[in-house]
Nucleic acid binder design. Sequence first.
DNA 1: CGACTTTTTGACCTAATTCAACTAATGTGG
DNA 2: CCACATTAGTTGAATTAGGTCAAAAAGTCG
Lengths: 247, 247
Amino acid sequence: MPNAFIRKLGSFEPLRSDDREWLASVSAHTRLVGADQDLIREGDNPENVLVIVDGFAMRYKMTSDGRRQIFAYLIPGDFCDLHVALLRKMDHTIATLSPCRVAQLSPGTILELTERRPSLARALWMCSLVDGATLREWLVNLGQRSAPHRIAHLFSELHERMKAVGLTNDGTFELPLTQAELSDTMGLSVVHVNRSLKELREAGLVSLKDERIVISDVQRLKDYSDFDPSYLHLRWPQDLRTSAQRS
Amino acid sequence: MPNAFIRKLGSFEPLRSDDREWLASVSAHTRLVGADQDLIREGDNPENVLVIVDGFAMRYKMTSDGRRQIFAYLIPGDFCDLHVALLRKMDHTIATLSPCRVAQLSPGTILELTERRPSLARALWMCSLVDGATLREWLVNLGQRSAPHRIAHLFSELHERMKAVGLTNDGTFELPLTQAELSDTMGLSVVHVNRSLKELREAGLVSLKDERIVISDVQRLKDYSDFDPSYLHLRWPQDLRTSAQRS
DNA sequence: CGACTTTTTGACCTAATTCAACTAATGTGG
DNA sequence: CCACATTAGTTGAATTAGGTCAAAAAGTCG
């Protein structure tokens, strides 16, 4: 069974088996990082590119008055910082939300990837494009939707992404977020997030318990939240991929 | 005097004079597009990369209930769609806000640029990284700041960007935005934008008139809006660049 | 068991929205 | 160049979504 990283790249490009094997070998060596640890800090200039193999992380930035805005969740298979080579320093922080297994890709590995494995390079580039598209969608979310719809949209997105790396069980998946983290994602107060979650729960749409989310009817949640998955650019329809991946 | 496109790339990388000349020649042929025209529509798969040589444009997306979120302003020197080669189709629309002069870079031009002009290629890549960073900053803006601060932050950013391409006159520059457009950018109602602008005006911070903005004291506006320009990654301090560019 | 964090709820407050009207611009055709 | 139509900006009044403060439950963990 391929790891999430391989699954993710595979959802953008059909991968040859030697590419899969190479990916498996370069991401085999992982280190464990506890929850709530900074992986890369604002101002750092990290050497290696990190990949979340397992666990949850986030990107965020603080304002000068101490408010925090989270602008991405990193789930298994996601990259931390493809771009950092060019920028002198990180303009935001990446931190774990739960214990994570993290693979480090050295500059040499990235070089081999970009120069000798074109389909992986394309998949990698796709990742950064999708990150951008996701950010745009989040802006739409914050700018245009009410609290409950906003939260529901986030959940729809996370469900879609988790499904793409094979980490859902129907509408259920791991989601180790506190309401404070949700509120810093959504530009809402904790109290209001709490009440909105209650509303969603009472509407029979979603419930959170024990770091897991349960979506009773995924399609209904997507309809409710006006979720259109096309911005995630997942090229291969879910069922196809799942069956093709049995090894 | 170099055009905005050359100035912009030059603000990321020191450019050799042959690179400058080449840029001038490939961006010499422009077409004129009137105000309020779509340059690229959601769903399109455009061949060429467009560069705004003159005028203002925006990126936006509609929600299914007819609300619009603007998530970028394109000012002279900005690219429309470096990435589109890989994605099957645009996931948002780009439209002009004022009459624009637009240069089209053919796939061949882009190829030459990426393969034979490394410093331009780096500058180009920087552009897309900065676009991403800007988007993140906008998310912070929508998520964490009150209406007047939010608007002030946008104005601070636009001032900085316009300055980088030599289009400011102290705190004054062209800004052909309606309040409706501002409201769709900021996730606010038109009425509230109007009142917030009044507040900023009465505080002596900014005034808008005749498609121009006047910032009486740029530093004061930046302080007010908690603006930190580092996310724009403008490598060369403004004064240096200006003097170096006298031809 | 305490100490601490997270969730939940109530009461109250305020930033922002909505609706509606009115004024000031801008533009268009005769 | 004016009359009329249309778009953009401004203001007031009423309403609401969301925030703040405070405190109680409910989990979590050494």
